[in-house]
Each structure stands twice: as C-alpha cells, then as structure tokens.
Amino acid sequence: MSTNLIAFIVGAVLAGLGSWTFQDTRRAAEVSEIRLAQATAEADAREKALAEERAITTRYEGALNAARTREAALRRDVDSARAESDRLRDQNADAARRLASAPAGAVLEYALAVNQLFDQCQREYQGLAAKADGHASDVLTLIEAWPKLPSNK
C-alpha cells in the first residue's frame, strides 16, 4: 500500500472520529440544555406553589385572628349585656317592692310607662329578628354557593 492511501485512511478515520466527537459533544450540550430548562421549570413551579401556600396560610391566619378578635368583642358584649340585664332585674324587683305600697295613680302611670317600653322593645325585637333572618340567609347562601369537590361514587 502506498503511503498516500494510508495517509488518506488515517485522515478519514481521524476526520470521522473528530466528527463523531463533535456530534457527541453537541448532543451532550443539547441534553444539558434540556435538563437545565426542566430544572428551571421545576424550580419555578416549586417557587410558585410555595408562594401560593404562603398566601393561603396568610389569609387563613388573618381570618383566624379576625375571628378571635370578633369572639373577644362578642364575649365582652355578652358580659356587658348580662351585667345590664342583672342591673335591670334588680331595678325591676325594687320597683315591684315600691309599687306594692304606692298609690293607685302612681301604679297606673307606671303600668302605662311599662306598656310603652314593652311596645318599643317588641318593635326592636322584630327588627333584630329580621336582621338575624337576613344574616342566616346570607350564611346559607354562602354555604350552598361554596365550591364542593366532586364526590367519588
């Protein structure tokens, strides 16, 4: 064989190896780019999920804190109403004792005043009942409209 032919074969083999090495390196770079894109997408998805979880937790904790604040205020209002009711009960008992020995005119005047007060309380109670019914209807609407997960039956 001639040296030219050997040189040609060696050159062809070297060119083929070089081309194969270049293609291998290029494919490895493409795979690395795809893996990097996938890792970036996964990291972005994790970050987004974590941000959504934080937002939900923040809203949840805010709602719980607001509910605790409302509960404390309602407890104070109930205690205040109970104290006022006790005061009125004592005042009513005292008035009943004094009415037992009061003249007829004073008893009639007291009865008229109590009737007027009773009528006013009845109107207020009806207004309160209407508001309570409205709130109950709102709660029922929220419960019925709340999204539900489909049941697996």
Rank of each mutant, 00 (worst) to 15 (best):
101 S>F: 03
24 D>C: 10
23 Q>I: 08
56 I>H: 13
123 R>D: 09
115 N>A: 14
13 V>W: 04
30 E>V: 05
62 G>C: 00
99 L>V: 04
37 A>M: 08
31 V>F: 08
77 D>M: 12
79 D>C: 04
135 H>V: 15
88 L>D: 01
10 V>T: 12
136 A>Y: 14
53 E>G: 09
118 F>V: 02
20 W>E: 12
125 Y>H: 12
68 R>P: 11
126 Q>H: 11
104 A>N: 05
48 K>H: 03
46 R>I: 01
25 T>P: 11
18 G>F: 03
52 E>K: 01
97 R>H: 04
5 L>V: 04
122 Q>P: 06
16 G>H: 01
33 E>W: 09
5 L>F: 09
117 L>K: 07
92 N>A: 07
86 D>P: 10
127 G>E: 06
94 D>H: 14
46 R>L: 01
79 D>I: 01
28 A>M: 09
12 A>F: 10
139 V>F: 08
33 E>R: 06
40 T>C: 02
70 R>L: 07
120 Q>D: 09
83 A>V: 10
57 T>Q: 13
81 A>H: 00
107 V>I: 00
17 L>A: 00
83 A>S: 01
48 K>T: 04
101 S>G: 08
1 M>T: 03
74 L>K: 02
135 H>M: 15
98 R>Q: 00
47 E>I: 15
21 T>I: 15
120 Q>L: 11
30 E>F: 04
8 F>W: 15
82 R>A: 04
69 T>N: 07
153 K>R: 15
109 E>P: 01
66 A>E: 06
39 A>Y: 02
18 G>V: 05
144 E>P: 12
148 K>V: 09
39 A>I: 02
89 R>L: 02
141 T>G: 15
129 A>L: 08
7 A>T: 06
48 K>W: 06
95 A>W: 00
132 A>Y: 07
94 D>W: 14
100 A>R: 06
66 A>P: 08
66 A>T: 11
86 D>Y: 10
19 S>K: 12
104 A>D: 10
78 V>I: 15
43 A>H: 08
95 A>P: 02
84 E>V: 13
153 K>T: 15
110 Y>H: 13
105 G>A: 13
146 W>Y: 09
125 Y>F: 09
77 D>P: 04
143 I>Y: 08
52 E>I: 02
108 L>H: 09
153 K>S: 15
57 T>N: 13
95 A>D: 04
64 L>C: 03
78 V>L: 14
70 R>G: 02
124 E>M: 13
103 P>A: 01
89 R>G: 11
110 Y>E: 15
44 D>E: 12
93 A>F: 11
64 L>R: 07
40 T>Q: 09
85 S>D: 05
5 L>M: 11
111 A>I: 00
144 E>R: 08
12 A>N: 09
38 Q>T: 09
102 A>G: 06
107 V>H: 03
9 I>Y: 03
149 L>M: 03
29 A>Q: 13
107 V>C: 01
30 E>N: 06
49 A>S: 12
125 Y>R: 13
94 D>Y: 14
15 A>L: 05
41 A>E: 07
99 L>C: 00
47 E>W: 15
149 L>T: 07
79 D>M: 03
42 E>P: 14
113 A>V: 10
